[in-house]
Design a protein around this nucleic acid. Structure first.
Lengths: 268, 268
DNA sequence: CGAAATCTTGAGTATAATCAAAAACGGTGG
DNA sequence: CCACCGTTTTTGATTATACTCAAGATTTCG
């Protein structure tokens, strides 16, 4: 009952006046929100125009920075244009759990629109480009265009669904499957936004970070990765992950993408 | 990589024409939705009237029944009036993870309003009384009264927040804290709906079910509970849980209720 | 009251954590 | 282009936590 206290590497805050560019979406294509929403339903011209007029602030943030922190009360949410972010919680003993990983097109803290006080921190896993959008303006948008509101609501529900799957993954699967599962999920989501070339994608997470996501020690992550390599299920060099045989990999991972609620974009 | 296959006790489906009563909320007080929403913001008379006019079907369901099942496409959601339900997933090896537990006042499958295909099953942990509400009608309600829509959205966001905390709890805390944490959460939520008398509440979960929720074996749950008992942190007989010293318990559990996003109802 | 479910205890084992150190890698500046 | 430094990955050895299996005690419920 006296958990070992582990120091975390300090993450720098991105607080302070970040250098950013004020603009509306129309100056920058593709608008990731339009793209995401169109994958759900056909936007009317009016809806599209409203989205293009959204005033946003675009910023680039380096690796290992926090974008928002637990306890804050942000007045804006952000969408991820490029890079990877992760949502995490730090518990009393100083350990850290990554509870979500975000890929381009995601809106990681949309929840802050309705839950003013953040109960998690969100930081970058790589250099990121993000656009901030004021809650006030998003709320007007949702009220004026209920279908957009419903689609954003849906987005938050999918995030919840992913969170439940993580709970099941980390709670019930053995180490090797657990790692395989998270790799399958990320690959699948990256494919949905056209970030998989052939069977190769980039996953900028260290083994320690994979451990924080799966509730395993970094050493054990390493050994599980080696099992997967030895079985010919993955090829992993640096950040490049290749999954040569998708169906063999999903079998080991016990991966069924239904929980992602995407229209399947078949692999291979 | 060959996980032991464990048979699950078959849960009976509640499919088929359940005996239920058609009515509107106004015939039955208190309307749990009104109560829940009023804990978030002051409802206008008009909003209250609209909610009272909601046509609903009230049903009683015995213990150990599934209310909805993974893969189904429900056309209605339900609110829990009395009893406990749990949301769970069954993974390939046959193991089961409970990903959420619901107490009276919760709306466990509100998500099916926007994610048509269920990716989880929801079953009862005790005899339950539930009210079903057609999605169609809920959608109209949300569109006509945007504040109600926002409040329901908020409810789903809180559920997501709880799910993240479970991921962190199960991933990073040692067994005893893990069990203590889930007991704190349930007690806290029950207190919010006035179901704690003194320091005692009813939690109708078996040790095996606590294990499925925390990713631990039933045997280990038993031993952790005994640790808590030995430390004088809980008194547990049957389904009755007493937490004599709340602050000592929260210290062991590393429990901070911020993630529940409730206005604190102080214990003691 | 009896059967089934649940809880409890014990013994042996497996998975994964910890600790420690070496090797490989990646980026930087000279 | 290369040497250097910090980070990350890898390996080995040991330990701890938690699982499995099994059987007995207790409780619950019909």
């Amino acid at each position: 009952m006296s958990p070992t206290r582990r120091r975390l590497a300090e993450t720098k805050s991105s607080a302070g006046p970040a250098t950013h560019i004020e603009m509306t979406f129309s100056h920058r294509l593709p608008n990731p929100i339009i793209r995401k929403l169109e994958s759900i339903f056909a936007l009317s011209d009016e809806e599209k125009a409203a989205l293009s007029r959204l005033p946003v602030q675009i910023t680039t943030i380096g690796r290992g920075q926090d974008i928002v922190r637990e306890g804050e009360r942000p007045t804006r949410s952000f969408a991820l244009l490029d890079g990877f972010t992760h949502t995490y919680k730090v518990i009393g003993s100083g350990k850290r759990q990554i509870v979500a990983v975000h890929v381009p097109g995601d809106i990681p803290d949309l929840q802050s629109m309705h839950l003013p006080r953040l109960d998690v921190s969100i930081g970058t896993l790589a250099r990121c480009e993000v656009v901030f959008m004021q809650h006030q303006i998003l709320r007007q948008l949702c009220q004026q265009y209920p279908r957009i509101g419903a689609a954003l609501w849906r987005e938050t529900l999918i995030e919840a669904s992913v969170s439940r799957e993580w709970t099941a993954n980390n709670g019930q699967r053995p180490g090797t499957s657990r790692i395989a599962h998270i790799l399958c999920e990320l690959t699948f989501r990256l494919r949905a936004v056209d970030l998989v070339e052939g069977n190769v994608c980039t996953i900028p997470m260290t083994q320690a970070e994979l451990g924080d996501a799966t509730g395993m020690s970094a050493v054990h992550v390493n050994r599980c990765l080696q099992d997967l390599r030895a079985g010919g299920l993955i090829r992993l060099t640096g950040n490049h992950l290749e999954i040569p045989d998708w169906s063999a990999m999903t079998a080991v991972a016990d991966f069924d993408p239904a929980y992602l609620h995407l229209r399947d974009k078949a692999p291979e």
